[in-house]
Design a protein around this nucleic acid. Sequence first.
DNA 1: TCAAAACATTGAACTATGACAAGAAATTAA
DNA 2: TTAATTTCTTGTCATAGTTCAATGTTTTGA
Lengths: 196, 196
Amino acid sequence: MLTSFTSINQYINRCAVFSEEEIAFFDSLLETKKAKKKTMLLREGEICDFEAYILKGCIRTFCMDENGNEVILQFAIEDWWVSDIASFHEQTPSKLYIETLENCELLLLHHHAKEELLAKIPKFERVFRLMVQRNLSVTQYRLLNTIAKPAQDRYLDFIERYPSIVQRVPQHYIAAYLGISAEFLSKIRTKLATNR
Amino acid sequence: MLTSFTSINQYINRCAVFSEEEIAFFDSLLETKKAKKKTMLLREGEICDFEAYILKGCIRTFCMDENGNEVILQFAIEDWWVSDIASFHEQTPSKLYIETLENCELLLLHHHAKEELLAKIPKFERVFRLMVQRNLSVTQYRLLNTIAKPAQDRYLDFIERYPSIVQRVPQHYIAAYLGISAEFLSKIRTKLATNR
DNA sequence: TCAAAACATTGAACTATGACAAGAAATTAA
DNA sequence: TTAATTTCTTGTCATAGTTCAATGTTTTGA
């Protein structure tokens, strides 16, 4: 087993029990890929053909609204998966962009490879179900928060929940994740800073 | 096969191919339940022990923010599933309320029953994965919309996407779904009405 | 090492939306 | 059928957040 696969194999072994052969088959389906900082891995209109597991680096997925503003759906770092799940599963044109924010090392699971995997080892259905389930509850929580809480609370939640991301990504991207302008986030921060 | 099960069985057969015995086993795990309008099926703090498939009726799931305002996560009607997926899968206290908005006929799949089902017929993993996946892409889309679009656009999207729900639920609930006050939705509507 | 680019801050004017209050309309239940 | 309850509307004022423009700061790459 390549050492670079260690973390992803631990990841899937947490969801269900697999034999060494099964794990080896899974690993054999993955493509390793390096991407420089600011590489677009997917653009709006393209069909997303991968789910990417991040060995190293940081990625954002975002969409463009009518006024050309970017809204960030997700930041992803080591041990997270990124994809456009709608585009990937229906094999339809994406509404999202996926862009590296740092130099990245990735493991890609392509669409045909995933189908082959699920056909051969159905137990993987469970792995992906659990992954999507967790993603859904986090997304629901964020949606409710976005609706119910003012920007300052959402920002405080964010830095508490994702302290490492705060260190790694520019502030205006965090604003685009929280759904506020970069200027307003700056004002929130100065207000918080002077209040102590 | 009971006729009341027809629709749910068609539903799961769309996700994967099952034998009659498998379907029969699935049906045998479901509990039928009727609930009057305005019944709370789940309250904050309780552990959600069901995923409910709606044969007839309409349900909302919502949470309460710090100021006691309700924020609606989902409206569900015939052929939809409702649950608190975080509470159900982790068996942890819920942050959500689930309430019938009409008299309902439901099929309940309880936690232990689902585990039994998945243990006995792993193919069902796929059914639930596909369900959760679709739910996730819809929720992501809604989140991005909530952030990027003004209230009027969100309202127009909503009536286009869910015309039948607009007919069935009071307007102030739709406001609570869109993330705006009931008064402001009313103003949007009068503005739209006078603009033609 | 320096210029260019990207990022962050600040202020002023503006806008979408909220909160409150009062009343009208519709629905429900007895 | 009527009273009670729920739902919807309208107006006024308050505010969270935006936009724009100017400036300062940090990072990047040749």
